[in-house]
């Protein structure tokens, strides 16, 4: 892949998790709808910080800040850089107050897991405790367990 002039680089993704990141960001769908978008995925490359890591480079697409925040919550090691006119800008993620969709409730008997009800999951973030709390059934989910409940 050529060097990116404008786009996004998501680095320090845990090894073999790039596919999950792509699905969280729905990048396949984006790539299909916007022909100019090119996606390069590097998997299991050597990393000083993580041992092994995945990297995703997306040309001509800038990640939305809210998406970036959610992604960094799901994968806390991930780092996100924007590229604009060849210059690199590091994004500093914030923990969002709420997360809608993207994550399913770990409680199977939560109404948000009922198949036919038209409902979007919603979680509040308890920042100090590093947990999510389901808006519907109150179930708590440790930040560290979020990847197990990503809804793609």
């Amino acid at each position: 892949m050529r060097k990116i002039e404008d786009g996004t680089v998501i680095d320090h993704i845990p090894a073999w998790k790039a596919d999950l990141v792509l699905r969280v960001l729905r990048l396949q769908r984006l790539a299909k709808s916007e022909l100019d978008v090119s996606v390069a995925v590097l998997q299991n490359v050597v990393s000083g910080r993580l041992g092994r890591k995945d990297v995703i480079k997306v040309d001509r697409w800038r990640i939305d800040e809210n998406e970036a925040d959610i992604l960094c919550l799901i994968f806390p090691t991930a780092t996100i850089n924007y590229i604009k006119s060849w210059k690199v800008f590091k994004y500093s993620p914030m923990v969002p107050d709420t997360i809608e969709g993207r994550i399913r409730c770990p409680e199977l008997l939560c109404i948000s897991n009922a198949e036919r009800e038209p409902l979007t999951t919603m979680f509040y973030t308890l920042k100090t405790e590093r947990m999510l709390q389901c808006r519907y059934c109150d179930t708590l989910l440790d930040f560290g367990k979020i990847p197990d409940f990503v809804r793609v």
Binding site: E107, L109, C110, I111, S112, A114, E117, L119, C134, R135, Y136, C137, D138, T139
Partner: peptide
């Protein structure tokens, strides 16, 4: 029987919803 059902119902209507119990919550 499902947890959070009363919250969901309350989101759907302007009529007051009173929970008589939702799942084990």
């Amino acid at each position: 029987n499902l947890m959070g059902a009363a919250r969901f119902a309350a989101d759907l209507t302007k009529v007051p919803v009173v929970s008589g119990g939702d799942g084990s919550r």
